[in-house]
Amino acid sequence: MKDVVILVVDDSSVVVEAVREALLGDGYIVYTAGDGLEALDIVKRQKINLILLDIDMPRMNGYQLCKILKKDPNYKNIPIVMLTAKSTETDRVWGLKAGSDEYLTKPFNYSKVKEVIKRFI
């Protein structure tokens, strides 16, 4: 695997750290952000290959970030995997409508996340 860059966006530092550690262990390059606005700033400055995205965050939420990126020709091809506690069927449907490529719900196991990442990269 060569320089695959993953952006982890979540307002929970516990989740961010756990996912970051696991991804680093697998050789990925990892950036992290605490909300959608911070993530948007990173996406504009760095080349990102995949985004793991939470939904409910204190500033811009995950659905909003997803819609913004999927509308922008510069970023629309970045795969977005929602990784969220919002686990009702309507949440999932809305996530897909917002343009996410995959929707995983918490609690998640890392092997599932890894499997999904491999599917897109």
């Binding site: 939904i55 409910d56 500033r59 811009m60 939420n61 659905y63 909003q64 819609k67």
Partner: peptide, 10 residues
């Protein structure tokens, strides 16, 4: 249509 909570900052 968009998902948004009015208490959010954005």
């Amino acid at each position: 249509f968009d998902y948004a909570n009015l208490i959010d900052a954005y």
